[in-house]
Design a binder for these strands. Sequence first.
DNA 1: ACCTGAACACCGTTCAAGT
DNA 2: ACCTGAACACCGTTCAAGT
Lengths: 241, 241
Amino acid sequence: MATVKTSRGRGRKGAPREPLTVERIVEAAIAIADAEGTSALTMRSVAAALGVQAMSLYNHVANKDAILDRMVDAAFARVVVPTDVDWRTAMRARALAIYEVLRAHPWAIGLLESRRTPGATTLTHHDATIGVMRRAGFSAALVAHALAALDAYVYGFAIQEVSLPLQPSEDIPALAQEVLASMPSDALANLAWFAAEHVMQPGYSFSDELEYGLDLVLDGLERAHLAARPARAARSKRGRD
Amino acid sequence: MATVKTSRGRGRKGAPREPLTVERIVEAAIAIADAEGTSALTMRSVAAALGVQAMSLYNHVANKDAILDRMVDAAFARVVVPTDVDWRTAMRARALAIYEVLRAHPWAIGLLESRRTPGATTLTHHDATIGVMRRAGFSAALVAHALAALDAYVYGFAIQEVSLPLQPSEDIPALAQEVLASMPSDALANLAWFAAEHVMQPGYSFSDELEYGLDLVLDGLERAHLAARPARAARSKRGRD
DNA sequence: ACCTGAACACCGTTCAAGT
DNA sequence: ACCTGAACACCGTTCAAGT
């Protein structure tokens, strides 16, 4: 079919300007998933974006699953854990950074579930995170509580936000009206109350809920931390670390 | 190929014993997803389980997406919200029930993300949930906080659990050892400390973390609830409702 | 060593044809 | 009204062949 051979991708010297690498493959895959969603992410589409045939990818990655693993790792590489502030500030910043990544790359949420082999980046990140709490005097058990609770909350919040019926810009009140109209009016009286009282109010935005719950969890952890070691906590107020 | 026509699925009277319905299709789809995962869930596999051709399904459902929507709705139909107990007991039971559903049907977690059209069951469930808090005197804003925080936590916890590297029965300590051995030993000192101190301890089970974080969130909500209406809360201690 | 055409065994879905 | 065979335009992946 295609009788014309393009010379794109080749420099003046005749050598391939951009040789195919795992990094370039993952980069192209992320760009496609960001722009068109995971359903558009196929071996053929990734290859096409790189000006290559689908089968060439198999020279650099084992299969599509390997690409998905790398994509998650690459996305989370952007989450930095601040180490020069107190644990609460650091863990709060980390949670918000993870949330931003999941917002920017919604496909990462769906992929979290199926990826089971943490990359080097993920391991380093967790090491830094644990370090923040360890230096603040957290017991290993409390570190486990904090990691599980904070990550669960952020992941789950991102999931909820993605699965909302409509984009933020669209008319949520209108949808609420329509849904309510389709049912016996008194069957969903509480939902109607909630919609009228809250969801349909002018400034409503689900995203605003993120920090409320996050601070709820951080409050609880702080309380547990102080209860476990009140002496040292008081001592560290005046002095080092 | 298949020259033998079976008479299974037909009663003695010659009439189809189990006519194809949306309910039977969804039921079969759930059974397949539970047993073999979503990757085994195809129009052809669902049809085969019902002793029918793939194309017959289209007489009862619009497409595969419609089946997925129905599956999520059917799974969550099993979550009941107790209405004869105080709000905290009710919301705690609801959270644990949702968690149980997500554990029993791990495919539901992955589907949560993409399903955007709530069914009648989902709406009724939310109405009952809002009712529990409304009757306890929650403001609409606090109801929103509670719903977002609790659901985020439970969904996120289920996601984390599914994405754990290994099944509970397998040897997590062994994996931890292997991972640590593959890196420079001091590069992941905090992770090593955490693993030795906590993950590799005999009784370790990630599932145990669920209730800790759940109670953390419930504590925070209770505090907010009491702070917002201390007078009425005290009054309801002695008396009606 | 890296790239590729052709092919395989699958998908979801359409359509015209059967009863 | 409901079921179906054949076909379409896709998938991920293998393999033998090219350079």
